[in-house]
Nucleic acid binder design. Structure first.
Lengths: 213, 213
DNA sequence: TGCAACTAACTGACCGGTCAGTTATTAAAT
DNA sequence: ATTTAATAACTGACCGGTCAGTTAGTTGCA
């Protein structure tokens, strides 16, 4: 019911406000973001957002918890599914998913926000680290172990692999969002993901064994 | 402290103020940073910093230009030197240098600042992109071409290689600085750099040819 | 059906604190 | 005595958060 008039059942309000808050926070940064702008973008007055959230910081925390929950769940799913059959395909899938997510400004907004604000909110940083990063690390560890067992991966350090998968995705995103700096030839997300997967799997040095893929 | 008394030749002041500004900006973010805190850290009163900089934003711009200039110069040097002899050693050197720099909070401070503030200052973003990123890309391109010519690298996309070198370094730094998240086994920068170099050079898949390293 | 009485949702003016930037003044060095 | 470096007090704009008041919608009752 899109009542143009005053809301009767305003249970959607908190999410509307959080959507608006996320976009303003990402654009302006948390400190420079004005609650009045958030309100305007959500179609309310400033006073009204304080009916739903006790403070600006509470909106930030709610956003972070939302995002962390979703990411942690995704990582947990990766762990529980595992990839004993085809670790390479699983790795390619993860990379494609990450590049796709990072390329979409809406999806990458919350992680970007966390990345830029975490160090000033120690509890947010700790929450994200424990919920998301540790879980992601375990997911990578599982994937790597499955690959080694299947003989398709050689053993490598999990933290390094994590940084070698997430780092390029992160870099790709930050270069685009902060500097508007894009690859010259790799135009589509799928091309970026494939190039990353290939480089990660086969390495920079040529293979003496003829078979590469 | 040299002169407890009033300075006669204050030509060192601008740099002292910029040092203080950098540390406060990185800790608090540009908007939340208070000029009075910068002044205090530089050992001055607030009014005095306005004798050297016309505004808070001018300090930010000066910092960015300083950092961008240094980084651009470093990248230019990489290009002009080239690495036709031993591209692998050159790559390992670049990676070691980057990991070392990113691990030092003082050295990585300015890039971190740029990364978090660039998107709100389009001219800063453009400047950094044109001065630093484009030059770095060319440096990587040169290195990759030298490697291919020498037969030690296979041809890969320069933008991808750039993201695969810089991304993990960036990720490593951000995980540490924002989340206090560190590798479990790779304790020293040199170990991180070696692990990254190895993974990048040899890939995740086992080599059928016995020789690795 | 019409009409009070009531409530939920919202508004916007306002208050108080903060902080970038200014200025009147002081003090050291020459 | 003059100039220069610096300060401390000040100004004014801005913004997070509050709250008295308004309006839209609901309920009870005739």
């Amino acid at each position: 019911m899109s009542t143009k008039t005053r809301r009767r059942r305003p249970e959607a309000r908190p999410d509307e406000i959080l959507d608006a808050a996320l976009s303003v926070f990402v654009e302006q940064g948390f400190t420079a973001a004005r609650v009045e702008d958030i309100a305007k973008r959500a179609g309310l007055s400033k006073g009204a957002v304080y009916l739903y959230f006790p403070s600006k910081e509470a909106m930030l925390k709610a956003l972070v918890e939302q995002s962390a929950g979703a990411l942690a769940k995704a990582a947990e799913r990766l762990i529980s599914v595992g990839a004993p059959r085809d670790p390479e395909a699983a790795l390619r899938g993860v990379i494609f998913m990450m590049i796709t997510a990072m390329t979409d400004p809406d999806i990458s907004a919350a992680p970007r926000l966390v990345l830029t604000e975490a160090h000033r909110f120690p509890d947010i940083a700790a929450h994200y680290r424990d919920q998301v990063l540790e879980t992601a690390r375990r997911a990578i560890e599982t994937l790597a172990a499955d690959g080694v067992e299947a003989g398709t991966f050689r053993p490598v350090d999990a933290d390094m692999l994590m940084r070698c998968i997430g780092g390029p995705c992160l870099g790709h995103m930050m270069l685009a969002s902060a500097f508007d700096f894009h690859p010259k030839n790799l135009r589509e997300p799928v091309d970026v993901a494939d190039a990353l997967s290939d480089l990660l799997l086969h390495g920079l040095k040529p293979r003496e064994d003829a078979r590469c893929d």
